[in-house]
């Protein structure tokens, strides 16, 4: 007798909890249009908002005259924990003063090794580096992940503090 009661109790308890769970899911089933949660990724690209602080990849900031603020001090290279930045510097004669000054030849950035920790951007004394909000960074070849951050033909801005 006891086992029959226990059995029936189990069934009613099971139906009860099934009901309480289905109440929650049923609410969302019938109110699916009220709060749409799932978005199909490539379709919402136009409305997708990337926060300004989002760390997508490292870039060098260039202004409209194709000038940057990097003087080749290699602080970013030293701050990088995994060697993903290599600054190749050069020395040229300044025509105005006649002294030799250090400029960057190539600011090489190995994106494949980067952990996007933001330490290089923080270390930069002249705010030459920044993070951009790119997020579709997958490529087919590893070689394509090596970038030269200073644009071709760019030069250092005047009055960059050392």
């Amino acid at each position: 007798m006891n086992s029959i009661i226990k059995y029936l109790k189990g069934i009613s308890q099971g139906l009860n909890t099934l009901w309480s769970g289905m109440k929650v899911t049923g609410y969302y089933f019938f109110n699916a249009r009220k709060e749409i949660i799932t978005v199909q990724y490539p379709d919402n690209k136009d409305t997708l908002k990337i926060p300004e602080r989002f760390r997508g990849r490292v870039i060098m900031v260039h202004d409209q005259n194709n000038e940057h603020a990097c003087n080749g001090c290699t602080m970013c290279e030293m701050a990088c924990p995994n060697g993903s930045i290599k600054v190749i510097t050069d020395k040229v004669l300044d025509p105005n003063t006649g002294k030799s000054v250090r400029i960057i030849d190539q600011h090489v950035y190995y994106f494949s090794m980067c952990t996007l920790c933001n330490l290089c951007v923080q270390a930069c004394p002249s705010d030459a580096l920044a993070m951009d909000g790119s997020y579709e960074n997958a490529v087919f070849n590893r070689e394509e992940l090596t970038f030269v951050l200073n644009l071709p033909g760019s030069k250092i801005r005047d009055n960059v503090k050392d």
Partner: peptide, 9 residues
Amino acid sequence: EETTGARLT
């Protein structure tokens, strides 16, 4: 993401 710039790390 808005404050720290990253979602996980």
